[in-house]
Amino acid sequence: MRLDRELACQEVVELMTAYLDDVLDPLDRERFEEHLVFCDGCSNYLEQMRATIVLAGHVSLELPPALEERLLEAFRGWRGS
C-alpha cells in the first residue's frame, strides 16, 4: 500500500529539472515540496542543482567553431536515434 500522493526519492530526482523549470502542475509541485521537507538527500540535491545552474550561468565559454559543429552534429544524431 502506498499513498497516491507520495513521491519516492527516485521520482523526485526525475522531476528535479521540471521543478526548476517551473513546469510541474500544482499538485506535483506540492508533492515535490512536501517530500523536500523531510528528505535531506533530495533537498541537498536540489541545492546542488541550483548552485550548478548559478555557476554555469557565469561561465563564459566559447568553443572553437569546428568543435561546436561536431558537438551539434552529435546531439542531432542523438536526438534522432
Binding site: 517551473d22 510541474l24 500544482p26 509541485r29 515540496e33 512536501e34
Partner: peptide, 21 residues
C-alpha cells in the same frame, strides 16, 4: 494566487506537521 507558484503560502494549524521548518 496560483497555488504552488504565486501567492503567499501559509498554514492553518492542521497543515503544520507537513511543512515543519
Amino acid at each position: 494566487i496560483d497555488p504552488c507558484r504565486h501567492g503567499v503560502h501559509a498554514c492553518s494549524v492542521h497543515h503544520l506537521p507537513i511543512w515543519l521548518d
